[in-house]
Each structure stands twice: as structure tokens, then as C-alpha cells.
Simulated assay, not measured.
Amino acid sequence: MGGCTNCKGKAGCDHRKGAMLESVDRALADLYPTKTWGEPDDTVVSGMPRDELDALADELAQELGAATFVREGGEDEPCDYIYVLCMGRTPCVVQVRDHGVAVPAEWDGTNAIEELYLRVVVSQRARVAAVQQVGVDLVKTGDGFLVRERPRAGVYDAPLLRRMQKLVAILPAYELLHVDFGEIAHAPPGFAAGTWRDLFGGEPSIANYLFYPQPTTMVATSYLPETR
């Protein structure tokens, strides 16, 4: 693949990125009048209702030819997630971990499973979404399984890119602005870290203001008991 400098579509791409970043700047200004992480103005919340989120997941499943799963964000995560299964088969690890699906019999005797997803993160505070490539690994341990979720700062593997392009093209129909993780991985100028530095160290990125508090590539590990 060629670089951006010599790409014939660079001018149009730069224009779209400029408009996207202007929209992000406006959203940050509206959501954080004190310009401090952890001090959002929740009176301006305009996120996606659950029925629209489910409808988006259904359309993505149909258009991408892949299973999709919605997971609502935790109490400290002002966002929701749609997982698009790109490598693996159902019943998958995300179904067992998040949706109460029983551990399948085919996992018997399995030491490890690796799955690959596109993870759409949708803000609960603004009509904004972004997409990450996420690996989900399952490892047998004792009387259960360890599940490790490994997000990357964007989408990189070639087999995922076509689905990624189709996915992004669907988002405007749901009044969602797609933001590229590469453009929101830095701290917003003029903003204060607030309590984020005490939690994670360093400075929060724009993604942490719009979506979830944890660093964008932080690995999350959970435990699944071996029960059916």
C-alpha cells in the first residue's frame, strides 16, 4: 500500500479528516466545559438509544456476513460496544463471556482459542463511534478459562479492512460520526487530565473523553468457570 503523501485521494481524505476533527472539537467543547477529564456535562447527552444500537448490530451482521454481539458499557464506561466476529465461529468466546451462553462441549480438551473481532465503540454522550481491531484469546486453566481481550489502536490486518470499510459506510445512516482512532489517540490540547493521571498515569487521549476511561490498548483479562 502506498503512503498518504503520494495518494491521489489525499486532498479529499484531508478534507474529510478536517471536518471530522472539527466535529470532535465541538463535541469536546460541549461535553467538557471545564476542559477537565472526569467532569463531563451530562445534561448534553445525545447518545444512541438501545433499540438503535441493536438495529445497527443487526444491519452490520447482514451487510458484513458476520455474527455481531452488543455489550453495554460498564458503570464507568460511557459507551457501548458491538463486536463483529471476523475470525472464529459461534458459539464464540464473547457469547460465553458476555451473553450467558453455556461453555460449548467442543471446548473440552482445548488448551487455547484465538478469535478476531472488529469492535465498534459507540459513545453514550454524543453521536460518535470508532472501530478497533480486537483479539480475544481463551486459555484453559485449572477448572476454568482465562479470557484475554487485546485491543489495538485501530484496524491493521488486511483481512479486516474490507469489512471495516463497509462498516464505516453504514454508520452515517444512524447519524453516527466515525472517528479514526489514529486521530484521537493523543491528548486534546488545552485540556486537563483531572483524576485520570491518578488512575492510569500520563494524559488521557481524546478517546478517553469520548468513550471509555481505560487506555485504548489496555489488555483486559477475565475468568470463566468451566460450567454448563
Rank of each mutant, 00 (worst) to 15 (best):
G3L: 06
C7R: 00
A11W: 06
G12T: 04
C13N: 03
H15K: 10
K17Q: 08
G18S: 03
L21K: 07
D25M: 06
R26I: 01
R26E: 14
R26M: 09
R26F: 15
A27N: 03
L28Q: 00
D30M: 12
T34D: 15
T36G: 10
P40V: 04
P40F: 09
P40D: 06
D41N: 08
D42E: 15
T43N: 12
V44Q: 10
V44D: 14
E52F: 05
D54I: 01
A57R: 02
D58N: 13
E59F: 04
A61S: 15
E63R: 10
L64K: 12
G65M: 04
T68A: 11
T68E: 12
E72H: 15
G74F: 11
G74S: 14
E75L: 12
E77D: 10
C79D: 15
D80P: 04
Y83R: 07
V84I: 08
L85D: 06
C86D: 11
M87C: 11
T90K: 14
C92I: 00
V94G: 14
V94S: 14
R97C: 12
R97N: 15
D98Q: 14
G100K: 04
A102R: 15
P104C: 13
W107V: 02
G109N: 11
A112M: 10
A112W: 05
L118E: 03
L118G: 08
S123V: 00
Q124T: 03
R125C: 11
R125Q: 10
R127W: 07
V128M: 06
V128D: 00
Q133P: 03
V134N: 10
G135I: 01
V136S: 14
D137C: 07
D137L: 11
L138Y: 02
V139T: 15
K140L: 11
K140V: 03
K140Y: 08
T141G: 15
G142H: 00
D143R: 01
F145G: 05
L146V: 04
V147R: 12
V147Y: 10
P151Q: 09
P151S: 09
P151I: 02
G154A: 04
V155N: 12
Y156H: 14
L161V: 00
R162P: 05
R163D: 15
K166A: 14
K166C: 09
L167M: 05
I170Q: 13
I170A: 15
L171E: 06
A173N: 08
A173Q: 09
A173Y: 06
Y174S: 01
E175Y: 07
E175S: 14
L177G: 02
V179M: 04
V179Q: 04
A185L: 08
H186K: 05
H186G: 06
A187W: 07
P188H: 11
P189A: 15
A192H: 08
A193E: 01
A193I: 02
T195H: 14
L199T: 05
L199Q: 12
G202R: 00
G202F: 03
G202L: 01
P204N: 08
S205A: 13
I206G: 08
A207H: 05
A207S: 03
A207E: 05
P213V: 00
Q214M: 09
Q214Y: 09
P215A: 03
T217F: 07
S222W: 09
S222K: 03
S222R: 09
T227E: 15
R228E: 13
